[in-house]
Write a protein that binds this DNA or RNA. Sequence first.
DNA 1: GCCGTTTCGTGACGGCGTGTCAACTTTGCG
DNA 2: CGCAAAGTTGACACGCCGTCACGAAACGGC
Lengths: 205, 205
Amino acid sequence: MAEILAVQDGKRERAKAANRDAILKAAKRVFAEIGYETATVRDIIRGTELASGTFYNYFRSKEEVFEALAEDGARRFRPVLRAARESAVDFEDYIRRAITGYFQFLIAERIGEDGRPVSEMAPHFRTDTPEMKAVYEEVRLGLEDAIARGLAPPVDTDYLARACIGLSQDVGAAMLQRSPPDVEAAAAFAAQFIIGGVNALPRKR
Amino acid sequence: MAEILAVQDGKRERAKAANRDAILKAAKRVFAEIGYETATVRDIIRGTELASGTFYNYFRSKEEVFEALAEDGARRFRPVLRAARESAVDFEDYIRRAITGYFQFLIAERIGEDGRPVSEMAPHFRTDTPEMKAVYEEVRLGLEDAIARGLAPPVDTDYLARACIGLSQDVGAAMLQRSPPDVEAAAAFAAQFIIGGVNALPRKR
DNA sequence: GCCGTTTCGTGACGGCGTGTCAACTTTGCG
DNA sequence: CGCAAAGTTGACACGCCGTCACGAAACGGC
């Protein structure tokens, strides 16, 4: 009756989800406060009500927690990319929407104004984790899609996706270092750069 | 007589330089073999003939050794950039030379064919260390120089430098993952992308 | 050469974080 | 209610960290 939308009813399942969530939340806070490198598993677990051993029922290491956080972020970001792809009227529009979405995401995700810079908090911000790879694939598919529709010239989509991601990450980081960060200006810069770049590319494949 | 070009004669100075060098060499090998994250200061010192305490006479931590290695790399790379700037006949030529130089550098620097991927070995590959910042400055100056000479349109050189660096890093990484890596093709891709991007940029400042 | 001074290598030590595990508590279920 | 399964707990052994008192080796004045 009261559990109309109870996705999990067992007390065990609820506790499990709650514990995992508590650890993730604590980790996010601890990483932001003292930095990923210096943070210890104990620091994280102290941020919860659980005992040290319990940590290892959920994650194998500090690194795995970080990856889980990155996965979360990527999972939340993917819909933004997909929406950009589906609602865009042309290639230029797609790029602009995707970049703007990413930069807004960056602003929204950084721990409320304080916290350490992303660079310090993200030690190995590479396309390692599965969900990270999924974002890369989403970008690449978006580009291939545009090419298939004749909206962009046929080029090496692997290089192109990597180029767009690397460029966006660094311009995004530069944007965050300015105060106040200007999403519009940064997005316009990155988007126009990419569009111009794509059009100048050697047409392969 | 026999010491015509002896830069350091004191036995102390020579030992110091040799020890520091031994630690750096061992660290480079250890990082490549077992990865930066899992490597310990003890692992590094075991790769030399020295005692554990000696490590701390030269570096404060594993991270500081890594930074020293990064500094070394950046210091060796900077002349490549400078040469590109000085010998280039126009903006397009400058970009092409710089990118090609960087990609050749990547190929030359990776631990002989084996070793872990750069991404795993370089946990915080950001523009943190002084020498790293110097590379960024070198890039930015090269771009400002081109703009001042009217070879490129006036744009936000901070964003532009970041964009070029991020793009080059990621395309370079993608190149290294292919076998065999094709420096020419990758450099042509990155250079043309950048040139096209710059020309499409909103002219500010 | 000799010896006081300084510099530096050495490895043992206290402190701390790690990951494990046997004992204990809670939940699910008949 | 009671048993089995699942999960939590914190103490423990292990390994790494960074330091420090000690001794050896190099320097430099005589």
